[in-house]
Nucleic acid binder design. Sequence first.
DNA 1: TTTAAATATCTTGAATATGAGATAATCATA
DNA 2: TATGATTATCTCATATTCAAGATATTTAAA
Lengths: 140, 140
Amino acid sequence: MERKCSNLPFLILMQTSKAIHDQIKVEIAKNKLGITEFSVLEVLYQKGKQTIQQIGTCILVSSGSMTYVIDKLEQRGLLSRNACPDDRRMIHVILTDDGNKLMNEIMPKYHEFVDNMFDTLTSDEAGTLVSLMKKVRDKV
Amino acid sequence: MERKCSNLPFLILMQTSKAIHDQIKVEIAKNKLGITEFSVLEVLYQKGKQTIQQIGTCILVSSGSMTYVIDKLEQRGLLSRNACPDDRRMIHVILTDDGNKLMNEIMPKYHEFVDNMFDTLTSDEAGTLVSLMKKVRDKV
DNA sequence: TTTAAATATCTTGAATATGAGATAATCATA
DNA sequence: TATGATTATCTCATATTCAAGATATTTAAA
């Protein structure tokens, strides 16, 4: 993931994102969830009923991985698959009561955790960081 | 990896790093290498002889993964394991002539590729981006 | 209607990553 | 010199991810 490299912005960007990713992984693991699993639950929690396709597009995960992760979350009783009557190719996914309950517990702590990671920046600095990264992101 | 989130710096940072990571993955795959494989070769190319431990620490990969990736690169004849006479727990790894030749071809193109991703930023902007990200990285 | 193309999901196999535990060597110190 | 702790590597089981192909459905066109 990380490499020594003559390009400093590149190096620091990759180091920073990995550090953040690793921290979040640890935080989320406390709830016996992987990051992808948590991402699926988060989308459903925020948006309600979604197709597998929609979730996968949203969190940038392939259909093969989606099947795998939805399977596991369904087995744990955190979400359920529901056939869509309009278009039987699609499957709607929704949180179960257990899933909702779990997310109600997790999300406040999670948001606080993420905010804490960036609270070393002033509001101005955060804005600058965002605009500079967007320039890079949109070019790549 | 990516999630909708109320924290904008977090969201953009993770999106940007993933976009870059994906691009590099594609670029490196042209040489029939994974990112971890490439990272190992890069460390050896820059630093010469290294122990497996040193390489793993440098590229932030576990010992289990190191054994696997060194195995594959050794099978392809790009590097070789050499027992260390001073401390027989350690194994020195060096690039073979084939490995060196390959890296001589790859590295100039790779550096150009990385530089291109960031050349939308002025020198000042790059400096600002680096210092802001360092603040976040060092806090996390 | 029939066919072809596009779409949505699932299945399978390969690549990659980790952690736990095994093995073996070295180091520290009593 | 013992012996206990640490270190380096490897092995093994498990987990995650993706790509390619299979299946089934819908849509569009002939």
